[in-house]
Write a protein that binds this DNA or RNA. Structure first.
Lengths: 396, 396
DNA sequence: GGCATAAGTTTAGCCGCACAACAAATGACG
DNA sequence: CGTCATTTGTTGTGCGGCTAAACTTATGCC
């Protein structure tokens, strides 16, 4: 989902493109405003070069200068640079029980958002996508009227999406199969003049938001578990999403954890499965499981133990295969985290072959509500940061 | 294991480094000699630039010019360029029942090799590495005396090696644990003036050889299964090895395929396990299994069916997690391929969620004998190709 | 022997970065 | 209050590396 050109010949332009991205990334990733001199010191470029690059980025409205504020030391005061609000990315999502739109600027600030709840199991793709297109118009319209540039949009879907622009192959919990999402969307918003959105898997995009949220706090190679109605996962390595060949990585829901019975992970650790085994009605909120477990309900505790062990074995397989350092629990599994932790950590310690030298940490997601919406918007913004020129925002 | 610098600022030099690599890669990867003009057309660089770059590569003895041969058309005849034999990589391997050294030049030609058989289960690391160092001296010495430049060496080990230079954590089938391989090797060959070898996992390096062997024939994203005494695997994406965070990816041998019993893949599909279940003595060659299966021995067929099904389920998990297109069977599993194929393909078709749109092919490895030796040498050579300057072979 | 064709080289020009000198804006200090 | 040290940002100057276009070299064809 990244646009960094790696194949072709390197021309003079390439230098500039790369260094524009380098400088922009530095300012965007910094926790506080930085000066041109700071960027120069951190990147290894000279102040002169950084100045020239920053000037272009400011002109492209990707960066903005704040008023110089006198530091507490000698020397000319620095001009603080911040990501400008002039360029935004739009995140879209269709999921089983809601659809939403979220607009983020380069600083990661939410400029506008709207989430509409509903039940989209066995829904008609055309209807749902029409509603999404309308919602996007409502949310993005006012932002655009404010004069900002929309760099693009990305749509998160709970299923197999063929890399970036291809069709949606299957979304089991929506009941969708072989849907040409882009064609349906284009029919409804062609007049808008907006670029077609990129398409991505919900877990992959949510993991992107999580990677950003965890940027400061620790190692950024982890498996992100997205427990919604199904169980998805995504692999993050050094802060970058690992998409796989077609963009279909991380499909752990159908992992077989019991050879004899052909039992899958989802049938032991999926939301519906846990509720059923716990003897609670299918419509119960996940919190009900926690409450019953805290109250000591034996059947519920047993269901959670089974789920935790199954999840642990499946995740141990993942860690053995891709070698990451952490497991991040998101979605419903984040809510249940403290009740799943013991069997999960036990299974990881037992079955991960590298555990004695690199223990696998289990942590709870911290990307906030609807992380896939944030991640989708971030995917667009990351493409801008990676190569501001190729993404069409900055001038050569 | 690649040396392509991606973090820092792009200077003028970076252009040259990158384009040197681009040109060199093109000549090395081409199936037949190519001209400067061919390279220019293929890379998008101008003939002038390619000429300047090629001149440097020839001077560094990475490329060589052949005598111009008149083509069957008008125009000045082209000067054919080929990878020179002037720079070589050395592959080393210690495995359960042999150790070896192989010397490859950039064209992939084996210039020298030696494999010494033995039984290294529960061996003393110091003894074995002393023998390896001696073998390396014997094999590499004459080559070096011929005037070629040794770009470096890499050592394949059947265990967990901490990325590139770290210690060997554990090699179960050698009985080694927390061995500082580099220190032991340095003690025996310091006088040689050779660079310390890179260290790598046997399956990962064998997969590298396989990726090169399959370069022409098809898609180059696959799981490589390395069935020796244990079962290792490696993931290849677009021709590049996927090492994981510490270099420990692909450890599928301990995949749990039966939750209730905690049964691992190795105990169902490992060489020793299949022989035991088939009722054959532990020392039997793998061919004996094929012969017995062809003769219709029911117990042997059953053992192979069990192994194939277990392997299929484990590999389906891998494919679901990392999304690759093919399964390549290497080592002992290559020999057994035709007897494992049916249950394997069945399990893959059943459990890989993306199978309806992208069926997973099962193919047999074609990298030849001792692929890890080849792969280790290729790892060194690939670093040279990726950045001839950084690897110290070409001049600025 | 001219002519078309293609490979490789030479020359001029431009782009982008480093380097160094310089201008600008502040705190420290007598 | 003035000078100096200090740091930021800008302005030339030079050089490396690529492109573009003209030129040279070497062949086949008529």
């Amino acid at each position: 989902m990244s646009t960094a050109a790696v194949g072709g010949p390197a021309r003079q332009e390439s230098l500039r493109h790369r260094n524009l991205g380098l400088v922009l990334r530095h300012v965007v990733d910094a926790p506080r405003p930085v000066s041109r001199a700071d960027v120069a010191a951190a990147t290894g470029l000279t102040r002169a070069t950084v100045s020239a690059l920053v000037d272009r980025l400011v002109e492209a409205r990707l960066l903005a200068e704040l008023a110089p504020v006198a530091a507490q030391r000698a020397g000319r005061p620095a001009v603080p640079l911040v990501p400008s609000g002039g360029v935004v990315g739009v995140g879209l999502e269709v999921n089983v029980d809601y659809l939403g739109v979220r607009v983020l600027d380069l600083a990661g600030t939410v400029l506008a958002e709207e989430v509409r709840h509903g039940d989209f199991r066995r829904s008609d793709p055309a209807d749902v996508l029409r509603a999404l297109a309308a919602l996007e118009r409502d949310v993005v319209g006012p932002v655009r009227a404010g004069g900002v540039t929309v760099a693009g949009s990305a749509l998160a879907l709970p299923g197999l999406v063929d890399r970036i622009t291809g069709p949606l192959r299957v979304a089991p919990n929506l009941g969708w199969r072989d849907v040409d999402v882009l064609a349906l969307l284009a029919g409804h918003e062609a007049s808008d003049g907006v670029l077609a959105p990129w398409l991505g898997n919900e877990a992959n995009l949510a993991a992107r938001a999580e990677a950003r949220a965890r940027r400061e706090t620790g190692p950024s190679s982890f498996v992100y578990v997205s427990g919604e109605v199904g169980i998805g996962a995504a692999i993050v390595l050094d802060g970058a999403i690992f998409p796989g060949r077609h963009g279909w990585s991380g499909e752990i829901g159908h992992t077989v954890v019991d050879l004899a019975g052909g039992v899958t992970l989802e049938s032991l650790a999926g939301q519906d499965a846990i509720l059923a085994r716990a003897g609670l009605p299918r419509e119960s909120p996940v919190r009900a499981l926690c409450d019953a477990a805290d109250a000591g309900d034996a059947q519920v505790l047993e269901a959670l133990a089974v789920a935790g062990r199954a999840l642990g074995v499946a995740l141990a397989n993942v860690v053995n295969i891709v070698d990451v350092e952490e497991v991040v629990l998101g979605g419903t599994h984040a809510v249940l985290a403290e009740h799943l932790r013991a069997p999960l950590e036990d299974a990881l310690a037992r079955h991960v072959i590298a555990a004695p030298w690199a223990p696998v940490e289990v942590v709870v997601a911290q990307a906030g509500a609807f992380p896939a919406l944030t991640g989708a918007a971030l995917a667009v913004l990351q493409a801008v940061v990676d190569d501001p020129v190729a993404s069409g925002v900055a001038v050569g």
